[in-house]
Design a protein around this nucleic acid. Structure first.
Lengths: 308, 308
DNA sequence: CGATCTTACGGGATTCGTAAACATA
DNA sequence: TATGTTTACGAATCCCGTAAGATCG
């Protein structure tokens, strides 16, 4: 019961060539070797597959029955192998990634676009969730890759690359802070603050920075989504703190982003996977493409300081 | 690119067992051998299929993609092999046989019934044609087996078994011949004769018998089908000569069959196949089952001499 | 340290190619 | 006799099992 593809290929070749000699040539094999292979297959099946004398080779009824099904099986098997190799060399496959909403809306779309130009066979499954959610999805293996905030101390998670994202103040165009030359942590305390809910990485960074400075944090609103925070700022409910990469800031013309002159307002970001898991090759390649971009965020300037 | 089923089975076993050791036990294989097999498969595919350390074994994403397709392919392949073995041992398959109409209607139905009791997987493709047609169908390989009349001298045909079928006179119940003790060839010449058309084996036998006896053959009608001949006899158009195995005689109550006391009125019958072709195993078995019945026809008595 | 996977290696089975024998038109 | 299949046999390869080594919890 130990069949190998070689024997099937041999059978099909002889059936198609109508001759052992020609089939052997086609298979780059000596003709006696082919005879033996066919005989072994015949023994395995338990019946002659060819009626052959020194002049003619023809399929027996059993062989005739077998030919189309074996052809089909062989094709399928080879197709599976080809698919597997495509998966393996990274030319195909699905990149399953969980990602902070800020990156999902800003960096990621362009990266995906670039990557798909290099690897047209790549598909994407992108989940945008807050930092806690990213970690959970990676841990439960619902995604292979995670772009999360903070530095996860979970031993089940492995950091592939660490980067930083500067936080910035978002306030209305006419806010008093826009007049200042430098914006510090302390200068914020005078104004009401809208801050994304706990569980988000921005919140974690801001909370620890305020605590370190000995300032109590008392946000007036705690929305889940950054766009909501921007809307509140625009309405005059206060100012907010967001990652400088957040697309929401650019999308809203009546608010402005201000750099904060404080090293503590840096959000660490991490590209993670589950420890002990190998990534699918496409995903590996995508992670490699992602890394330099994360590097850049460290030094990236806030491009929209004032509206044009 | 030389995959064998063993490696696929190994992969599936490890994936299902979640451990090399347990999978090796299940496969009756040493564990290191299994490691090697998996490694070879991985080299063939070009990617790791399992993430493994000394404690845990888990599918990689590539392995996870591959598992269901390989399971499906393996199942199919094994199914094909099982089907092939069933075909080979004669427990399955189609008996393709061409047969003289007389046998198709009389002997064959019972034989098929018997045979299907022994081999429930057997299917039948029966063609009923006159002798010429049987030979043609066997020669063109549209059927594997032929039950024909006469002794075919075609070198492409091989006689597996030869038998004989007595011919008999069929006449109305009140015909003068029914009063005779013996019916000879010469006693026939006084009456008009209905005879099946040339191309039929009965016609060939009768023609040569008459020729040998120096009697001219002048049939009043030459129907193609024996049932037509019987109908003509019943209507009083004359008498006819049919194989004693013909069911048509029994089916018609107003005619009677009389034995002919003449050795020349014996129709040779032959079980044939194409020379150089092996028969499908079911067909081989059916031919074997057919042979003793053909033997019997030599000595078979005409059971219906007079209606009850 | 204990369970489990990996590596190393010798022996046996498999499979190849060459050469000679065999069969058939 | 010529063409093409089968048989025979020595050599290379493949594959298994045993034993020793490496690794992780």
């Amino acid at each position: 019961m130990d069949l190998n593809l070689r024997e099937i290929r041999a059978f099909i070749a002889v059936a198609e060539a109508g001759s052992f000699t020609r089939a052997a040539l086609r298979l780059h094999l000596s003709q006696p070797a082919l005879t033996v292979q066919i005989r072994r297959l015949e023994e395995m099946v338990g019946a002659r597959l060819f009626d052959r004398n020194s002049r003619n080779v023809a399929l027996t009824p059993v062989g005739r029955e077998l030919l189309p099904v074996l052809q089909k099986s062989l094709r399928e098997m080879e197709h599976v192998l080809l698919d597997a190799r495509a998966l393996s060399d990274g030319s195909t496959g699905t990149v399953r990634i969980a990602c902070l909403p800020s990156f999902a809306a800003s960096l990621l779309p362009d990266l995906v676009l670039d990557f798909r130009q290099q690897v047209p066979g790549a598909a994407f499954d992108i989940r945008d969730v807050v930092a806690n959610g990213v970690n959970a999805l990676v841990r439960s293996e619902q995604v292979d890759l995670g772009l999360t905030g903070g530095e996860p101390d979970d031993p089940l998670l492995e950091v592939l690359h660490a980067g930083e994202d500067r936080l910035c103040i978002v306030c209305p165009l006419d806010h008093p802070l826009t007049k200042k030359r430098r914006v510090t942590l302390e200068s914020l305390t005078a104004y009401p603050l809208v801050l994304t809910a706990s569980g988000t990485s921005v919140r974690a960074v801001v909370a620890s920075a305020f605590e370190e400075a000995g300032v109590t944090l008392a946000p007036t609103c705690e929305p889940m989504y950054m766009m909501t925070a921007v809307g509140m700022v625009r309405a005059g409910l206060g100012l907010t703190i967001l990652p400088s990469s957040a697309r929401e800031i650019l999308a809203e013309p009546s608010v402005v982003a201000l750099a904060i002159d404080d090293a503590r307002f840096v959000r660490p970001i991490a590209l993670i996977k589950k420890r002990g898991r190998t990534l699918p090759p496409v995903t590996e390649a995508f992670a490699a493409a992602l890394t330099p971009t994360l590097q850049d965020t460290k030094s990236r300037k806030i491009t929209k300081r004032r509206p044009a």
